[in-house]
Design a protein around this nucleic acid. Structure first.
Lengths: 165, 165
DNA sequence: TCATTATAGTTTCATATGAAACTAAATGCG
DNA sequence: CGCATTTAGTTTCATATGAAACTATAATGA
């Protein structure tokens, strides 16, 4: 009788970076972000975080800083700083929530809304030029795949032990 | 006769961030990167760039710093720094290319290869857990969509004017 | 061959980042 | 109520980042 267990060559486990999903996503995302930010970074002197804060505040006026942090999956420190700068440049207003005086109530000012109205279409146009590479079926498939991955990524994040010595 | 051109309400163009592809990609990519780096950041005191340099050098021994920069879509300054630290920690060797004395020849040391062999499987395992959220058809569709988007993103990058006053 | 230009890699410098500590307000609980 | 705990937001501080300047070598071309 032959050996019951075939001699299992230990897999070389070469990580083919160019096929590795996390790498491809990161590379794609960075390139896209750079492409979009090119449309506002210099024109309006906005950082990526500042632009995101504007986009969220434009869509959900009256949100607190924490609300923006959650909506945008942003860091609370960078949101705090972005809001301060935007308020300083009169692109946003910040008031204290009378219901809960720890919270701020954030809204775009008229100038902020003007910038939002100018940048948002450019961002959407960039997205459209990108998505033009896909037919409707492919878009739908991408959409669903990204949603599923996002859900799974969040689950894996939850599952991760706090400290792994 | 009615007006030939129907009164076109200017589209409100609200940017729905939660459906906006660049945002979703960035959020997903950041979460995934954080999940993977959790497996090596503290255990081996490696930054993300350092880990990427190891991954590339492990896969393509003898590459120059520029080669790593290109393969990894990384910044040359951060590659330079990552390589210096890795060489300093004896995880890499750096020698001068005799063919072109400007170039370095980079290879993992035995210790570097040991770390590579330990981390690469963990990274691949993470990717597998992520991809388990998709069935084979969905994976294939995602693959193709990401490739097409990557190609398009590069085209758009090319097309972008150098400076947009 | 010498002078110009291009390329690989490093250093400098000014800015960005985020963890941890902090302040202030709210909430929970004895 | 009164003390502990939680939460919103800011500040501090140490580190990360990348554009621009720089060094060294190679390639180009008069």
């Amino acid at each position: 009788m032959e050996s019951a267990v075939p001699p299992r060559t230990p897999k070389p486990t070469i990580l083919r970076l160019e096929e590795f999903l996390p790498f491809r996503l990161s590379r794609l995302s960075n390139t896209i972000s750079a492409g979009i930010s090119a449309t506002y970074t210099h024109r309006h002197h906005l950082s990526v975080t500042e632009w995101r804060v504007i986009a969220i505040a434009g869509r959900f006026p009256g949100l607190s800083a924490r609300g923006i942090t959650v909506k945008g999956a942003l860091d609370k420190v960078s949101v705090s700083r972005a809001v301060s700068r935007l308020v300083g440049h009169d692109l946003m207003t910040r008031s204290v929530d009378p219901e809960d005086r720890r919270r701020s109530v954030l809204k775009l000012s008229a100038a902020g809304r003007a910038i939002y109205r100018r940048i948002a279409p450019a961002a959407i146009a960039y997205e459209q030029r990108l998505l033009a590479a896909l037919d409707p079926v492919e878009r739908e498939a991408l959409d669903r795949a990204l949603d599923k991955l996002w859900q799974r990524a969040q689950e894996l994040e939850q599952a991760r032990p706090v400290a792994e010595s």
